[in-house]
Design a protein around this nucleic acid. Structure first.
Length: 531
DNA sequence: TAGTAGCGCGCC
DNA sequence: AAACGGCGCGCTACTA
């Protein structure tokens, strides 16, 4: 508030605020009427926002932001209610999942410490052992003749950075041991084992898992460790004394206008168990209190529907209208397959057609290039390039819309969603060469904003509708990008489910005028589940 | 000792 | 030639 007030030269003083914390521990003051100073402060808290709003109103109109401002204002009570209500957690079930995972994690540790610990020790004694044969040769060549060496191979990261990653690893606390959570230590140890990697993330290590048992084991360990550290006791400690977990929502936290949440971030709770069958997903610990049910609805394929809407791509609009599996139909169109083809089975260069189509459909929303497609779909670069070409021949409307949108956004300085939500961009002169990367990034964001941001528009509209229309006793619990979770007394589950279906469709209809909107399926259970 | 940068990884 | 967006957070290692 202070910043906004300053913009309109409205005086604000926050000093009086310091008086409030701990007031309940000061019985005399607690019982007495508010001092004049505090009253002034409290009045200010009402008056200043009003004055700010008065200043902003004409500007909002002028910039055609009235609709999105209204949308945001309508969503405020829903967000506030979710923050206050929180979500009920089955702590016991959570602890038992955690215990099993930790047991598995600990079982892996002796072997890993032995193998990687001794490897790290060798690397510490002589860190040259952590260089691959090829790198040793290159470094030698570079030292001998910097001008002539295959400098190009270092170019990607730059020699300085390349060397930095090969500096002496930090010594573990005890000789012969290793901190498995330390990327630098891991890097040195792995390289000493002959695994020529330059990072220790899952994607980098995965190809070596077959060859090196230690790598396979390490990958499992990392996964279990991640779970324990991010979704273990630390998170459980945030459960309030009433057994409910509460988060902080930031209503316009993301540049796209999406809601973000933190402390804890409930939008990153693992949805599924990677190894099927064995363990229960932790979302199952987000439960309905006794006498209640959890209801979940999501906006299926919403980003692609938005894309079809804004681009008016006739083909994609038709596929949605037909209500078929969009990824499969995309594959059929791209590869000229007959309608009855099983696109999960039909291979193109060794990769299922549906997977390729899905990867492009999905990746499109954030400006994926040929390289990204090659990585994700598992094809080579030329193939990826030709696949993207084919995709855009299939969806001409999208092929036109994407670059046009980027161009317009950068010209006028902002991209816009269907509710009129803006994302601004600094102007980037074409003439300057060094900002090509900046420009490319801005273009991706500009293409992305109408899709992401409209998704946020729709979600917020749905939240507002639901907050106003859910049966009494039913409460909004969670909002995760395209998914809304409600907790509801058993007696009115059917009514609430109906309200949810109607609200989701209405929210879509408020913004999407052309594309087909299916009525969402509402899942009803005793816990938060995925499907 | 406290703050911060970088890596890595969870979600969509 | 190449480069996948955008968010929060835990951890380590470095810096002040």
């Amino acid at each position: 508030m202070r910043e906004s007030a300053a913009r309109y030269r409205l005086p604000v003083s926050k000093e009086a605020r310091a008086w409030f914390p701990g007031l309940h521990t000061r019985p005399t003051e607690w019982a007495a009427p508010f001092p004049a100073e505090q009253l002034v402060y409290m009045v200010q808290d009402i008056e200043i926002p009003y004055a700010i709003a008065q200043h902003q109103r004409p500007r909002i109109k002028e910039q055609k932001l009235a609709r999105v401002v209204h949308l945001e204002n309508e969503a405020v009570p829903a967000l506030a209610a979710m923050e206050m209500r929180g979500v009920c957690i089955d702590v016991e079930r959570w602890r038992s999942i955690l215990a099993r995972k930790q047991a598995r994690q600990q079982a892996l540790e002796p072997g890993l410490r032995e193998t990687l610990g001794t490897a790290l020790q060798r690397a510490c004694d002589d860190y040259q052992v952590a260089l691959t044969r090829e790198e040793k040769r290159l470094v030698e060549a570079y030292r001998a003749n910097p001008a002539q060496s295959s400098w190009g191979l270092f170019r990607r990261k730059g020699l300085a950075q390349w060397q930095a990653t090969h500096k002496k690893p930090p010594q573990p606390k005890e000789r012969g041991t290793i901190n498995l959570a330390s990327p630098p230590q891991l890097l040195a140890a792995l390289r000493a084992l002959g695994v020529p990697v330059s990072a220790t993330d899952e994607e980098t290590l995965e190809p070596y898992a077959k060859e090196h048992a230690a790598v396979a084991s390490l990958l499992q360990w990392k996964e279990l460790h991640k779970f324990a550290s991010s979704f273990g006791e630390n998170l459980l400690a945030m459960v309030d004394t009433d057994g409910r977990l509460r988060t902080d929502y930031a209503q316009i936290g993301a540049a796209s206008g999406r809601i973000i949440c933190s402390k804890p971030n409930l939008q990153q709770i693992p949805a599924e168990e990677e190894e099927e069958g064995q363990e229960e997903p932790v979302r199952h610990c987000f439960v309905a209190p006794p006498g209640y049910r959890i209801l979940k609805a999501d906006l299926s394929n919403i980003e692609l529907r938005i894309l079809a809407e804004v681009s008016r791509d006739q083909t994609m609009l038709r596929l949605f209208a037909e209500g078929k599996d969009l990824h499969a139909e995309t594959a059929k169109l791209m590869f000229h397959l007959s309608p009855e083809t099983d696109t999960k089975r039909h291979l193109y260069k060794g990769v299922p057609g549906r997977k390729i189509a899905k990867t492009i459909n999905f990746g499109l929303a954030y400006g994926m290039g040929a390289n990204g497609l090659a990585n994700r779909a598992g094809v080579d670069l030329p193939t990826a390039k030709s696949l993207i070409r084919t995709y855009f021949e299939t969806y001409r409307g999208i092929a036109r819309w994407l670059p046009l949108t980027a161009k317009q956004a950068l010209e006028q300085g902002y991209a816009v969603t269907l509710a009129g939500r803006r994302r601004t961009f600094a102007s980037i002169p074409t003439s300057v060469d060094w900002n090509r990367e900046v420009r490319a990034s801005a273009e991706r964001s500009a293409k992305n904003h109408p899709i992401r941001g409209t998704n946020a528009d729709i979600l917020k509209r749905a939240l507002a509708l639901l907050h106003a229309s859910l049966p009494s006793g039913a409460h909004l619990i969670l909002a995760v990008h395209d998914e809304i979770v409600v907790e509801c007394p058993e007696e009115c589950v059917e009514e609430a489910a109906g309200v949810m279906r109607a609200a989701m469709v209405q929210a879509c209809r408020d913004f999407l005028k052309v594309v087909h909107i299916p009525e969402p399926e509402v899942l009803i259970g005793t816990y938060w589940c995925k499907e």
